[in-house]
Design a binder for these strands. Structure first.
Length: 361
DNA sequence: TTCTCTGTTATT
DNA sequence: AATAACAGAGA
């Protein structure tokens, strides 16, 4: 039971991660591009729903080719959407009364300029979506809702994310929920608090959670995405996972004091795993990097990105992911095992106090 | 600098 | 109450 629960959590997490990784690949494109087109107004942004990227990946490629990261002139989105006429015709249909039922695919024709009435309705819909996916805090940091990097997701009351495993389901609400769930953007302790969907950590007192660590929130705020898109293309990410992911979940290793986040970017396997998620989350700009206390919390769990100051701490922590319980109760009659030695000791003292006393005396 | 032990907090 | 997980102190 004890063993099972730990491994189950891990399995859940792993499974979810895989899903997210797949999704995140597409999302990454959308984010990356949107970072370069900040000046868009809300209305314009609404005209380029994320769905467009997820359902028409080629279009994204097209945009990449025309807008290299080095010099994003923040072109008006309209210029990138030459195929409006067909949408207009769709709108006409929608105006005829189908607009209430034409949404199931989540591909509402938001890019055209419909009649004010319709447009308002669509905007309203978008606003509602964004309410779901955005925290006020992040709205403050990034003035543009659409450009917010994976926001701390609104915790779904239903922790069972299995519903999202359905491709159709994920695509149908790809816009808001997709972003909202953006994965482990969620703080590990929050994840744990949400049961199976949140298997990793549960303590709120953890100071070095991804979102709290110096290379997270601050890096967002200072992210060169905003100032130097070219830097992003060089792949300066602070993300241990892509490195060790193939080795196992716990290929942690100390970050060298002079650690330089030089991720040669998309290692094929990593891309396939969607490690972009972490890349997004752990990018450090030169500024924030220099400000980062190098001697502290250098050991990052590749699974949950939690930081530890000691390798032993990290090793012990890794047990929580693997379910490994190397410390077994010495009492023959008790087959219990623990992942933390002190916990085993305590168990021994508490549960086998008399037995141990007999043995020791 | 790291490890072990102890204490604490959260969860079940 | 038992357990999981973590941080801090001391070795």
């Amino acid at each position: 039971m004890v063993h099972g629960s730990g491994r189950e959590r891990e399995a859940h997490e792993h499974h979810r991660r895989l899903q997210f990784q797949q999704q995140q690949q597409q999302q990454h494109h959308a984010h990356f591009y949107s970072q370069q087109t900040q000046p868009r107004t809300y209305g314009v942004a609404a005209s380029v729903p994320p769905q467009a990227c997820s359902t028409h990946p080629p279009a994204v490629e097209y945009q990449y080719q025309h807008n290299p990261p080095q010099s994003p002139p923040s072109p008006p989105v309209e210029e990138q959407k030459p195929s409006l006429p067909s949408i207009s015709s769709l709108l006409t249909i929608a105006a005829d009364g189908e607009r209430t039922t034409s949404e199931p695919g989540g591909q509402s024709p938001k890019s055209q300029q419909p009649s004010p009435e319709i447009r308002q309705e669509q905007q309203h819909r978008d606003q509602q979506h964004q309410k779901h996916q955005q925290h006020p805090q992040q709205a403050a940091i990034v003035s543009h809702p659409r450009m917010t990097l994976p926001p701390t997701p609104p915790m779904h009351p239903d922790p069972v994310v299995d519903g999202n495993q359905s491709p159709s389901a994920s695509s149908s609400h790809s816009a808001p929920y997709f972003l909202g769930q953006s994965l482990n953007n969620m703080e590990p302790h929050q994840q744990r608090q949400n049961g199976p969907a949140a298997p990793l950590l549960k303590r709120q007192s953890v100071p070095s959670q991804p979102s709290m660590s110096p290379y997270n929130a601050s890096s967002y705020a200072q992210s060169p995405y905003a100032s130097s898109p070219g830097a992003a293309s060089t792949g300066s990410f602070y993300s241990p996972e892509p490195h060790y992911g193939s080795v196992g979940m716990y290929g942690q290793r100390p970050l060298p004091s002079s650690y330089q986040p030089q991720m040669p970017l998309p290692v094929p396997t990593n891309s396939a795993n969607g490690s972009n998620v972490w890349q997004h989350h752990h990018y450090i700009s030169a500024t924030s990097q220099s400000a980062f206390p190098q001697s502290q919390d250098r050991y990052i769990c590749s699974t949950c990105n939690k930081a530890f100051s000691r390798p032993s701490s990290l090793r012990i922590h890794s047990h929580s992911h693997t379910g490994e319980k190397p410390y077994k109760c010495p009492q023959p009659s008790c087959g219990k095992a623990f992942s933390v030695r002190s916990n085993m000791k305590r168990h021994e003292r508490g549960c086998h106090a008399s037995a141990s006393a007999t043995m020791t005396t």
